[in-house]
Design a protein around this nucleic acid. Structure first.
Lengths: 190, 190
DNA sequence: GGCATTTGCCTACAACCATTAGGCAGGAGC
DNA sequence: GCTCCTGCCTAATGGTTGTAGGCAAATGCC
């Protein structure tokens, strides 16, 4: 009975890696136990239950993604910032599809409010400062950006653009351009 | 041993209803058997397996949604058609969240190609005819519309807009307006 | 160092879900 | 009336979640 030094953090990280390899849905307590060559009930000392594991992975992914986005948009403004923001999301989803899926897990309101999810919204709002939108247009625009980026990335990951021209990258650039034009058009400054 | 006249179609319909009530993920062969007061293995005469059930529900939902959208956009053009198209999606997702989730199930390429999914793309292209976009802009625009609508509806269903002003409906209308303006702006006709 | 406590991993067990094999009876066709 | 097919059944296997209780290694205290 060697002690392996398992912790919730190590399990969460391993779960995130497993999600990228086999899909978030396939991350189970059993699979995780197999990965550490440990019996299943042993993990229940570190995790409350299966949902707890999923939530931890989701929070981890939200945090990691927020860090990436923050890094990408630092020092940029306007169209540059918008494109960096957009690319950070898309690149993360392509590199880490399982973690991205985890980040979309529905969290209960309290957990969500304490998560890095709020940073995502704040960063979107920061990007939009460059376009000088009034309320409530700024909120509408935050929601639109979230919708387009999340929607596009999900459809692309689901293989929706796999067997048709043009390349998914081209459409992405066209969309980011269009959104930039749209936001400039809706700006309150003449 | 009464014969109940179960068929794949009845099971699919019941599964769709169950999805709306308890969530698509909770639609299991066991739960379906309970609903018909029948032993679990009995369903395997009608369904290949659990995945088969899910796929059937997905195809059913795609078909039903395509019918609704077709009905909504019939006889409309331009902004009217765009709004009708958008509302048909959003309303369906709100009325039938489980079926909407089912419609997002990843299908294998052959199944997808034979599904009502292609009608969805065709209808989106039809809407865009009113805006006279060249290729590849028309394809980019189809992808953008799919992304925004799907993204918004998922975020709304996930409760993302629950605890913040303004109302989800207002943002939706603002977004549809904005997309209309954007598409007119990108039109190839001066 | 010796000893008690905590803690990490274990075995055993119960419940639920998916799936297969094989049996029996009800209804269709002749 | 007889046969055959089909629909639902029982039985059994294997995988997943979760709980209870045990034992030994690590930790802390004197």
């Amino acid at each position: 009975m060697e002690r392996l030094g398992l912790t919730p953090e190590r399990l969460t990280r391993a779960g995130a890696e497993m999600a990228d390899e086999v899909g978030f849905d396939a991350v189970t307590v059993s699979a995780l136990a197999r990965r550490f060559d440990v019996k299943v009930p042993s993990l229940y000392s570190h995790l409350k239950n299966s949902q707890d594991l999923r939530t931890r992975i989701a929070l981890f992914a939200l945090e990691e993604l927020a860090d990436r986005v923050a890094d990408a948009v630092a020092g940029r403004a306007g169209r540059d910032a918008l494109a960096a923001f957009a690319d950070a999301y898309r690149d993360y989803a392509r590199e880490h599809p399982g973690r991205y899926a985890a980040a979309r897990l529905r969290l209960d309101p309290d957990t969500a409010a304490a998560s890095a999810g709020v940073r995502h919204v704040q960063m979107a709002r920061a990007i939009l400062r460059g376009y000088e939108l009034d309320e409530p247009a700024a909120t509408h625009a935050v929601r639109m950006l979230g919708s387009v980026f999340h929607g596009y990335v999900s459809l692309e990951l689901a293989g929706g653009f796999d067997h048709s021209a043009p390349d998914a990258r081209e459409s992405w650039d066209w969309i980011v351009d269009s959104l930039d034009a749209l936001l400039r058009d809706r700006s309150s400054t003449p």
